[in-house]
Write a protein that binds this DNA or RNA. Structure first.
Lengths: 192, 192
DNA sequence: AGTACGCATTGACTTTTATCAATAAGATTT
DNA sequence: AAATCTTATTGATAAAAGTCAATGCGTACT
């Protein structure tokens, strides 16, 4: 049970048997089907979600009714509406499954207790957050690039996501329309 | 000495006298003049910088020779090239002073030791990083907005920065040209 | 099997933003 | 005080991206 979760954890820190046992008491397994919601805008985001298998996305819906993709999450990744998760405010994101998925849910209170009880986990959380910070910084810097360069960076950085997700969602993630991305791709393939 | 630094720290955690003394041994004070560099692209970013007074910015220079502002940092804020800082790779950012500033420098090794020796500081670092993550997430979401909305959010979120920084730098921070921002502002003032 | 839906593409057109060049007012330097 | 930067603005034009509508294809649904 939860092999992916602990494997990921062990990449950064070493846990004793007892510590792992403590962990297990806080974990909430959940399977969801494609297109099922795990969080809807307006609800409180009670859980941080670890993806053991499958693929989730978070997104908002803008005034024109278009989805704006915020994040994707593959196996081994975390996803949540961080702001709602830690403040208890209503979520601004929807999170749903793009593939049938297996998840581990964990509440903010649980994470706080774990950080208290298992200092190594506090360190893990720090490192985790720092990586996420750097990834965001990188992504933001790509917003200065033009359509083609932005798409190239995406393919480079997350080839697996590009493969498994419909193109119009990639476009949204990159802050583009589906049409614009389609045309850019055509140009790219025409050149080589 | 370093009153701003410790005041900021005390907002999140409580330090004993001894702990504070430990801290002080790792801090490197530095004053810099307006326009002076504290980091240049290509150099290793050896320090995280805490601003006690003044205003810094980090930026890159793109192919066309334009500055692209990455971050501003006011009193009480941290700034660094996080990726270079933790990996030791050459920095991709320049950091310089927009005003005469008083700084506290601290190395990555120092931060690691402090996180080890003072567990409260590890917690602080985690919370700090989490806030920075959320700020980035928010900023990225604003990139979907049009010029005017983007600028409004900026004024709302960081009115002090908007006041103290030239407009063309605000434009760059928002991923716009100076001309576009100037025109948007004109329209806004015309309407009310 | 047939219908509906999601996805990608294309064309025509509009809107937004960038680019280039010029000007002018302040601030800073010498 | 004069000369030089920096900053903000404006106009003309070009480039990039968005919008709207239509088509075709494949897959899922029942």
């Amino acid at each position: 049970m939860h092999e992916v979760f602990f494997t990921k954890l062990r990449e950064s820190i070493t846990l004793t048997e007892e510590e792992e046992a403590i962990f297990r008491t806080y974990l909430l397994p959940k399977k969801i089907r494609k297109k099922q919601y795990i969080l809807q805008e307006g609800d409180a985001c009670k859980y941080a979600i670890f993806v053991e298998k499958g693929l989730l996305r978070s997104y908002t819906v803008n005034e024109k009714g278009n989805d704006q993709i915020v994040q994707f999450a593959l196996e081994g990744w975390w996803i949540t509406d961080m702001y709602s998760f830690i403040t208890g405010e209503p979520a601004r994101y929807n999170i749903d499954a793009l593939e049938e998925s297996e998840l581990v849910l964990i509440s903010n209170a649980a994470l706080e207790e774990l950080r208290q009880r298992i200092p190594k986990f506090l360190e893990f959380s720090f490192l985790q957050m720092r990586s996420a910070y750097i990834a965001f910084e990188k992504r933001l810097s790509y917003m200065n690039l033009n359509t083609e360069e932005r798409y190239k960076k995406m393919v480079e950085t997350y080839p697996d996501i590009v493969q498994r997700v419909p193109q119009h969602m990639i476009a949204s993630y990159l802050g583009l329309t589906a049409e614009t991305l389609s045309r850019a791709r055509k140009q790219m393939s025409a050149r080589k």
